[in-house]
Every structure is written in structure tokens, then in C-alpha cells.
Design a protein around this nucleic acid. Structure first.
Length: 499
RNA sequence: CGCGGGGUGGAGCAGUCUGGUAGCUCGACAGGCUCAUAACCUGUAGGUCACGCGUUCAAAUCGCGUCCCCGCAACCA
């Protein structure tokens, strides 16, 4: 039974400011966390996010700004925290890989695996790509260029430590085969499985010599090395919510994670390295790793070099928090890539938020004011169409929950909007202004009350996605008397094309 | 023989696995209504489902082939 829900986002690398992609992951995670809190109780949900702060790139970036790596990281961390506040991200914990609790756990993990001989020392001779921080074996390299980035590789020879990924490859394949829910969506699952079955895993080099990199977690068994960032970073998921006891058993009230939410670019680390690390430690695996898609800017990939990176704060300032959250979760099915543009946001804003939702709330409350001086009437006898809407209201939470279970944010919102649209149609059908003229008192009362019930239900269901809007609607509905406010989403006038 | 995604009314997409009236949102046009944010409701137009061949009683959907588009340096969700 789902009596607890532990959800994580990736730890964001602090070498640059947050962008739309970071915000996408956290908004999705936040909506899910809020949804689950509603369903299983706030105390049963744990939502973790944080930052990944070690490694060469951070050290380099810090050097350029004449800061220590820690000072540099602190600056970016405050940007992330500010953004999460702006976006109403309700995380329960924020972990930084530079924190003591994390460092200690990583070192413990290293010790355990070293004692177990799953980490071994070897002389590494081969090719190293400094910008990528990646090792390559002879067979992968052509023309002394990095297979990934095509830049020149360095030939190096040094003592390093390796984690025995290869030992667990067959085990992992079997595990994934019998756990179809381990990686989602389906295409990513297929991708991982085919990668595992068609390649032989190399052991993972998990150390970096200190002379090359000092900004990292020191290996407990070698004073000359620090830990490779990915190996360090993944451990956050357990270092944040538990500890190892004297017998090296991992103790946690939250682990295993129910969901690791990630972007599609970091699937391999999460679906291959991480489960093997856990298996080697004798720790349960997370239930599901879900890799979502990317936002393309117009038709292009977002990239710093193209200079088309979208700043989430700008979007929030321009369109509002809830509009931004709604757009990201509604416009594209979770898992697929999407096209981001201001035009697309405006379109969604005007049609879904202003015309459908905002207008329904506004027109309904106006009728409550006009016909009942602001007092919401009692429920009454409904016609067939009205009864049907009543049933849909009752069924909506379960409908939305079913979609959310599959991380179908877009679908869940569609279902909510189906009700909104139905209500708008029903108004047209009942013509309340005629009921009022014809003095059909009971029918009008029951009708208006149904509309209010629709709005209340909608407010309840959109709360995980648009917390402020939901709160505003609830406030406007009031206790006994409504307190109508200004339109929730005043239309954005397209004619205004100033610069 | 590189890998992957895709080509469905003006735009964006669903449908393809499990063949059988081609659906949704936006846009356009017309009408209705007035409680409402020029909103809402109804209706209309618009598609040889990239192309060819094949399987089948029947193909957007299955098979084979062809063409075209996008991504595949780093940063990074």
C-alpha cells in the first residue's frame, strides 16, 4: 500500500544559473508531491531536491571568479533556492553535496564497497577528456579525439580506483526485466535494456587524483584521491534520508524512493550506475525512475552557446507563477520533448486560463451576487444533465489520480478542463437569466449551487498544479458569502506588440 | 549499411502496438446568447493520413521499398 511517497529531483549542478529545464523537473515533482500529500497525507510524503557541487567544472568556474569552490557554489545555490521559492516549490529537504551529512555517507559507502572488494585499485593508462571528465579505452578512441565531444584527449597513466559495474551487469538486466516499472516511460525502458544487453559494461573509474582535482570528497582509503562527481552525487538520495549503522546496514524511514524524476540526459547514471551501487551496498532499489523530455526553444535545442536559454524568473514575472506551471505541465505529455515559446504560453493562457477557467469562475460568482446577494444557495433538485455533472464532480478526484499515477500531468489537467467546459456548456443550456425572469426559483438555486460546486471541485483538483490560483478561488468562494475578486486571468491582448 | 525521433485539414497534436465511420486543441468563417474577461454556446469549411508496391473483404494502422524533415560538440532537466 502506498502509505508513504518519497520523490526526488536530480541534484542540479551549480556551475550555471537555473534555467527552464531545472524548473520543469521541480514543478513536475512539486505538483506530484502536492497531489500525494492531498491523497495520503502530508506527513507521508517526502520531497527532496538539492545541488551537486563538486568536480572540475565547479573548481574551474570558481577559479575564474576568484572564489573558493564553496563560495562559488553558495552563490548558485542561493539562486536555485530563490527560484524554488518563486515557483512555489514545496520541497521538504534541500541537500547539498558539500554538506557534512552527505560527505560522511559517501565516505561510508566508499569504505563499505572497498572492504567488499567492489572497489579496487588499478593503474589506469589511456585517454582522458578533461572537459568531459571522462575516461576512454583505446577501442573507443579514434584520432586521439573524445568520442563525445571530439576534442583532443590526453594520454594519461595514473593510479585510480574502480567500481565493479561489470560484476553486476547480468543481475541488473534480470532485475530490469522482471521490473517493468523500474524505468519509465516505455521507450526509455527499452533504451536502457537494449544498452545493457548489447554492451559490455566497463568498470567505473570513481576517483580523481588530487593534483588534478581537489574539490571533491576525499577517498577514505587513499589520501591522494577524491571521488568522481557522479558517484558522489547519486548517493544524495540515500544520504538525505538515512544513515549506516555499526553493522553497515542502511537505515531510513523513507528509502526506497518511490520516484526518481530525471531528465532524459541523465538516464544512464540513474538506471545503470545507481542501481548497481545500491545492489553492491545491499540496499533496495528505487521503485521507479522516470525520465522526462526536453523543452526546445522554438525548434532548437536550448543551449548556452546558442544564447537561447530561457530564464524561468523572466517567465514568472511576465506571466505569473501558475500560468508558467500550468503551461509546462499541460502543453506537452510528460516524457516527450516540447516546444517552448511565449506565443504558446499566451495561447494556453487565453484559451484555457482566461476563457475557460477564469471566465467560468467570474460569471458564476457574478450570478451568485446578482441573484442571491452573494449567499451561495443550498443544493437542490437537478435535471438529468445536472445530475450527470454532479457525478462527474464526484468522480473527478479518482480520475485525476489515475492519470497522476502514470505521471500524466497533461491528461489529468485535461480531465479537469473537461468539467470546466461541461459547466460552460451547461450554463448555455440552462439559460439562468431566463430562469430568473420566469421566476423558476428552485431550479435556479439548484443550478447556481451546482456551478459553485463545480468551481470548488476544480479548485481542489488544480491545487497541486496551481496552488495560488486554487487558494484564490477558495477565498473567493468564501464561507457563507462569496467574495468575488477581479478576474483570475485577464486576457493577454495580442494586439499589443510593443517591444 | 551509423543511431534515434518524425512526416495526419492553416498551426500544434492524438489515433498506428490490438486493421473496419479520421478525432482533439488553436485558428478561420457564420449564427446564437447576454450571467461573463469582445468572453461563452452552436454550426460550417478545410485532410488522396509523405510516396510506391504488397497482404487483406477492409490499411493512417501490417510487410517491403523510396523520399523528405529534425536531433546526435559542450553546458544541461
Amino acid at each position: 500500500m502506498a502509505d508513504k511517497f518519497y520523490i526526488t529531483t536530480p541534484l542540479y549542478y551549480v556551475n550555471a544559473s537555473p534555467h527552464i529545464g531545472h524548473s520543469y523537473t521541480n514543478i513536475a515533482a512539486d505538483s506530484l508531491a502536492r497531489h500525494m500529500r492531498k491523497n495520503i497525507g502530508g506527513g507521508n510524503v517526502w520531497f527532496l531536491t538539492g545541488t551537486d557541487e563538486h568536480g572540475q567544472k565547479i573548481q574551474k568556474a570558481a577559479d575564474e571568479k576568484k572564489l573558493t569552490p564553496q563560495e562559488f557554489a553558495d552563490r548558485t545555490v542561493s539562486q536555485f533556492k530563490l527560484l524554488w521559492k518563486e515557483l512555489n516549490i514545496s520541497y521538504d529537504d534541500f541537500i547539498r553535496t558539500s554538506e557534512e551529512r552527505h560527505v560522511k555517507t559517501v565516505q561510508k559507502v566508499l569504505e563499505i564497497l572497498y572492504e567488499k572488494n567492489d572497489i579496487y585499485q588499478d593503474k589506469y593508462e589511456g585517454w582522458y577528456c578533461t572537459p568531459c571528465e571522462t575516461f576512454w579505452v583505446e577501442s573507443q578512441v579514434a584520432d586521439q579525439l573524445c568520442p563525445d565531444c571530439k576534442r583532443k584527449l590526453e594520454k594519461i597513466s595514473e593510479i585510480n580506483y574502480f567500481f565493479k559495474l561489470s560484476k553486476y551487469q547480468d543481475w541488473l538486466i534480470k532485475y530490469i526485466q522482471v521490473h517493468p516499472e523500474f524505468v519509465r516511460p516505455q521507450n526509455r525502458y527499452n533504451e536502457v535494456l537494449s544498452f545493457l544487453t548489447s554492451n559490455k559494461l566497463n568498470d567505473l573509474c570513481i576517483s580523481r587524483p588530487k593534483e588534478r582535482l581537489s574539490w571533491g570528497i576525499p577517498l577514505p582509503f587513499s589520501s591522494g584521491h577524491v571521488c568522481y562527481v557522479w558517484f558522489d552525487a547519486l548517493i544524495n538520495y540515500i544520504s538525505a534520508v538515512g544513515y549506516f549503522d555499526e553493522k553497515n546496514h542502511y537505515i531510513s524511514e523513507w528509502w526506497p524512493a518511490d520516484l526518481h524524476l530525471i531528465g532524459k540526459d541523465i538516464l544512464r547514471q540513474h538506471a545503470v550506475y545507481w542501481p548497481i551501487m545500491l545492489a553492491a551496498l545491499g540496499i533496495d532499489l528505487p521503485k521507479t525512475i522516470f525520465a522526462h523530455g526536453w523543452w526546445l526553444i522554438g525548434e532548437n535545442k536550448m543551449s548556452k552557446s546558442r544564447g537561447n536559454v530561457v530564464n524561468p524568473i523572466d517567465m514568472v514575472n511576465q506571466f505569473g507563477i501558475d500560468t508558467y506551471r500550468y503551461f509546462l505541465l499541460r502543453d506537452v505529455p510528460f516524457g516527450l520533448d516540447g516546444n517552448f515559446s511565449e506565443e504558446a504560453i499566451i495561447k494556453r493562457f487565453n484559451s484555457d486560463l482566461a476563457n475557460d477557467l477564469g471566465n467560468l469562475v467570474y460569471r458564476t460568482l457574478t450570478m451568485v451576487e446578482k441573484y442571491y446577494q452573494g449567499a451561495v444557495p443550498q443544493q437542490g433538485k437537478l435535471d438529468e444533465a445536472g445530475k450527470k455533472i454532479g457525478e462527474i464532480i464526484k468522480a473527478l478526484p479518482a480520475e485525476a489520480a489515475a492519470s497522476m499515477k502514470e505521471l500524466g500531468f497533461s491528461l489529468a489537467l485535461e480531465k479537469i478542463w473537461d468539467l470546466i467546459s461541461l459547466a460552460n456548456k451547461y450554463i448555455e443550456q440552462k439559460k439562468p437569466w431566463n430562469l430568473a425572469k420566469e421566476n423558476k426559483v428552485d431550479e435556479l438555486k439548484a443550478f447556481i449551487r451546482l456551478l459553485v460546486d463545480v468551481i470548488a471541485a476544480v479548485a481542489g483538483e488544480i491545487a497541486p498544479f496551481m496552488p495560488d490560483t486554487a487558494a484564490s478561488i477558495k477565498a473567493q468562494l468564501g464561507e457563507k458569502e462569496i467574495r468575488k475578486g477581479k478576474p483570475l486571468f485577464p486576457r493577454i491582448d495580442n494586439l499589443r506588440t510593443d517591444s
